[in-house]
């Protein structure tokens, strides 16, 4: 945004076309590094994916034009439908819970009290753990024969649940560990947002003698809304792209109950050597996320209060 604003006055200086052209080129020059990086790592792979989705292809490259066959095949297959269901459920399980939990923790720790740093470190610490490492820890905890959950259940006399082997619970179990993993990041962003709110507003509120919840509803949430909007959008996109914990905890099983679209793409591309079908799924996922993000901007941003 800033860059565009600074460029504008230069473009209006019509009397100096030479200087303006130079400025234009100079602007491009500054953009060049990111354009190159984006082209190599984002735009080229994206167009290549769209291209490959119309072919029968393996890991070496396309070998037969297939038109829309890959799409037909996917949309008809039960397995893709269960992938969509798993993905939607997973997003619904994780995103609201993560944000509410992170917001709750951030509100708790936004006060300046002695020793609050310790709690802030605790609550944001999951951000410092890699997905792989935390998944392995959760895998041990879920283990029905030696895991801590089944020990607790046994001790309490409750039935032992096979969290990751039972299709009714597997997605829930993966979601739970994902909430734990992603809370740290959301917490940190939200805490930063809270710290940025002008303290005078709270002073005024105190003078007016309003209740805590009134203050939360009328001051904190509106002032935090740009941050909230950011974290909601990012969490949605992240949830759609979840891969690591599924690969380690369930490998898409049992009975494909956790086979989210990204995992299904990975399986088709790298295990089943069917890059065409994987590309088609990737394209479908891309448009789903695109539509959702646009909707969020259209509907959600109206409620966002920018200072």
């Amino acid at each position: 945004m800033n860059a565009a604003r600074e460029l504008q006055p230069v473009q209006t200086e019509e009397q100096q076309p030479r200087k303006s052209r130079f400025a234009f080129l100079e602007g491009w020059l500054y953009l060049l590094p990111s354009i190159i990086l984006f082209s190599v790592f984002v735009f080229y792979p994206m167009f290549r994916t769209i291209y490959l989705s119309f072919f029968l292809a393996d890991q070496i490259g396309p070998f037969e034009f297939a038109g829309l066959e890959n799409y037909h095949y996917i949309l008809r297959s039960d397995s893709f439908q269960s992938s969509i269901k798993a993905t939607v459920l997973f997003v619904l399980f994780t995103v609201p819970a993560t944000i509410i939990l992170a917001l709750f923790l951030a509100l708790l720790t936004s006060e300046k009290i002695m020793g609050i740093g310790i709690f802030r470190t605790f609550f944001s610490s999951t951000m410092g753990m890699s997905v792989a490492a935390s998944s392995v820890i959760w895998m041990f905890m879920y283990n029905p024969s030696i895991g801590v959950f089944s020990k607790i259940a046994e001790w309490l006399g409750l039935p032992v649940i096979q969290w990751l082997q039972n299709p009714d619970y597997a997605l829930l179990a993966v979601s739970l560990s994902t909430i734990w993993m992603s809370t740290g990041f959301a917490y940190l962003i939200l805490l930063g947002g809270l710290q940025n709110i002008d303290p005078h507003l709270y002073e005024n509120a105190r003078v007016a003698g309003v209740s805590y919840f009134y203050q939360l509803r009328r001051i904190t949430l509106p002032m935090l809304s740009p941050t909230l909007f950011f974290i909601i959008t990012v969490s949605f996109i992240n949830a759609f792209q979840t891969f690591g914990q599924i690969d380690i905890l369930t490998k898409g099983g049992p009975v494909e109950s956790t086979n989210v679209i990204v995992y299904s793409i990975y399986k088709d591309a790298f295990i089943n050597n069917d890059v065409g079908s994987a590309s088609a799924q990737a394209v479908i996922l891309f448009f789903c996320v695109l539509v959702l993000t646009v909707l969020q901007f259209k509907l959600g941003e109206k409620k966002v209060h920018y200072r």
Partner: peptide
């Protein structure tokens, strides 16, 4: 049902 992981199966046997 021990799932898909070799180590889980072996852990169930050891325990």
């Amino acid at each position: 049902n021990v799932g898909q992981t070799w180590d889980d199966m072996r852990a169930a046997f050891q325990s």
